[in-house]
């Protein structure tokens, strides 16, 4: 059942990752890897541990045990800054926006552009933010409104723009299209394929089977914190995946679909 890996070295290797909150095991010895120019779908029921696993790669959550390698070297991701210096950017499920700040301030939060004198360069940040946001949504206005006044979709667009603006090498997208309309969703799909072509590795958490089959090269399914299987997308169909998500096992009669057809 193991996939044949593409030829280059893996961008990210997560080895035997374990996370428990007291007695609650959220992630149970999960291993997964990611190659450049690849989209790996991370699937599973609600509470399966997908977000926890990804948050550990983002530096947002500490590991209970296990190891993360980036470009073959051990990476100690203690804080989100650590992850960002490795080129790991994240679109969080919760979006992680500061409600009282506007779009540009959020996009550059923690990495503000400054003038020669060390002051905030508002003009440049606004211009850059506008360019980045309009790329994703041509109708994006209200650039100077605090983001609490924006719609769910607009907020999501800001979170996406922030993750791609800083030229990620690894992109984690935790349900990036949950609040988006059809045209914005299509835009994000386009964007995903474009980034993939640029050699960026992407972890995509999604509950939408269409997205998964359209975008992913491989899928990894989690069930109650465990990795119950990693497959090339050609080797599974929708029913296989649903069976893994719900029961944690493949249908009894499964053989790799890619070979039979």
């Amino acid at each position: 059942m193991f996939d044949t890996a593409p030829t280059h070295a893996p961008l990210v290797q997560m080895c035997d990752i374990h996370k428990n909150f007291g007695g609650v095991v959220a992630v149970d010895d999960v291993s997964v890897d990611l190659y450049p120019g690849e989209v790996v779908g991370v699937l599973g029921h609600n509470g399966a541990g997908k977000s926890c696993l990804m948050r550990m790669l983002s530096g947002a959550m500490s590991l209970s045990s296990g190891e993360i390698l980036v470009n073959g070297e051990k990476a100690d991701l203690k804080t989100p800054q650590d992850a960002k210096t490795f080129g790991i950017e994240t679109i969080y499920q919760t979006l992680a926006l500061a409600d009282h700040l506007d779009a540009a301030a959020n996009l550059f939060l923690g990495r503000e552009l400054k003038t020669r004198f060390g002051n905030l360069d508002e003009t440049r940040m606004h211009a850059e933010a506008k360019a980045a946001l309009v790329q994703l949504n041509p109708n994006f206005k209200n650039l100077k409104d605090p983001v609490s006044r924006l719609s769910g979709g607009q907020r999501q667009v800001i979170a996406i723009a922030r993750a791609i603006y800083f030229q990620a090498k690894v992109l984690i997208m935790d349900e990036p299209t949950a609040a988006l309309g059809p045209s914005e969703t299509a835009m994000v799909a386009d964007l995903t394929l474009r980034l993939k072509k640029d050699g960026i590795g992407i972890f995509l958490i999604s509950h939408d089977m269409h997205d998964v089959f359209d975008l992913c090269d491989r899928v990894m399914v989690m069930n109650k914190g465990r990795n119950v299987g990693t497959f090339k997308i050609e080797d599974v169909n929708k029913d296989d995946i649903l069976s893994l998500i719900i029961k944690g096992t493949l249908p009894d009669d499964w053989t790799p679909r890619g070979e039979t057809s």
Binding site: T79, T94, L97, N106
Partner: peptide, 11 residues
Amino acid sequence: SNEEAARLSGV
């Protein structure tokens, strides 16, 4: 405004 968001953004 949002301590967790600030932390995740690298503040």
